[in-house]
């Protein structure tokens, strides 16, 4: 796929920066240069590229983020079991080590690429791009990118996804959105997971979690699900179907209008 995009993006960035930069001389003989470019320009550029690839192949990409152990992989397993006949799914798994999660997904007959980040606490757009080389996007409708379990670092790196899905398990505090505002502000949907445990955890109130999300000026839908019992899965799957249809409709529009839609996902 990179015959068309050309993956050497550092040079492309240099060129972009050259156009914006302004030079001025200070009294001391030093030169002050106004740059005004995003600190993550390199990553954002690659992310834009990834998004173009997804759009070109008609794929909806969802970045799945949460703390470690909130049930991301089991949610994906249940979702695959429910939607596997309807859509062609694929998964990119991000973990510091092991191939375990990708093996769980492959066991369900769905292509899965494992990215092991080593010590890196997040996925970035370049890692996702490399993983895309191993997936045939023409055979995919819906791609989940399961990020490294972490509520801080992944929030800073655009991967080229169309939507951010955040899991918050009931074994965590219901004030998590207030503690991690950068992450929860970017959510397009929040799933409160492991709701089968709610009877044992009387200090987690889903309405309080939702209130903290609203305080971040985020109107994203909040669903309670238990991947274990299946409770609440219908509402989540209905939202996914709706987003798949909305994405198809968007892809029918001009590229300029489409990129407007994702502006709020990008960092300046």
């Amino acid at each position: 796929m990179c015959e068309t995009c050309g993956c050497n993006l550092t040079q492309a960035n240099e060129h972009l920066l050259a156009e914006d930069a302004k030079l001025a001389h200070t009294a001391s003989g030093r030169e002050a240069l106004e740059v005004l470019s995003g600190l993550l320009a390199e990553n954002d550029h690659q992310a834009g590229h990834n998004r173009d690839h997804f759009d070109h192949h008609g794929v909806l990409a969802i970045n799945l983020m949460s703390s470690p152990g909130s049930g991301k992989t089991v949610l994906l397993e249940r979702t695959i079991q429910s939607l596997g006949e309807e859509f062609r799914l694929a998964v990119i798994e991000g973990d510091l080590e092991t191939e375990n999660d990708a093996q769980r997904i492959r066991a369900l007959g769905v292509p899965a690429m494992q990215i092991t980040t080593g010590s890196a606490c997040h996925l970035d757009a370049h890692m996702v791009h490399q993983a895309l080389h191993h997936l045939d996007l023409d055979e995919v409708d819906l791609l989940f990118i399961e990020n490294v379990g972490n509520l801080v670092c992944p929030a800073s790196f655009d991967l080229g996804q169309h939507l951010n899905l955040i899991l918050l398990s009931v074994t965590e505090g219901d004030d998590k959105p207030a503690k991690y505002p950068v992450m929860f502000r970017a959510a397009d949907a929040v799933l409160i997971s492991k709701t089968d445990l709610l009877p044992f955890l009387d200090d987690f109130r889903p309405d309080q979690a939702e209130a903290r999300i609203r305080e971040l000026a985020n109107p994203a839908p909040v669903f309670g699900v238990s991947a274990k019992t299946g409770s609440g899965m219908d509402a989540w799957l209905a939202w996914l179907r709706q987003e798949m249809a909305a994405h198809k409709a968007r892809l029918g529009r001009s590229p300029e209008l489409r990129s407007e839609d994702w502006k709020h996902h990008r960092h300046p």
């Binding site: 002050a32 240069l33 740059v35 005004l36 800073s156 000026a217």
Partner: peptide
């Protein structure tokens, strides 16, 4: 109201540099 739009506050910008030759 929670229906607000962020005008400023999520910046992560390289504003300027001072260079010498």
């Amino acid at each position: 109201s929670y229906r607000t739009r962020l005008l400023r506050g999520d910046e992560l910008i390289l504003a300027s540099l001072e260079l010498t030759r």
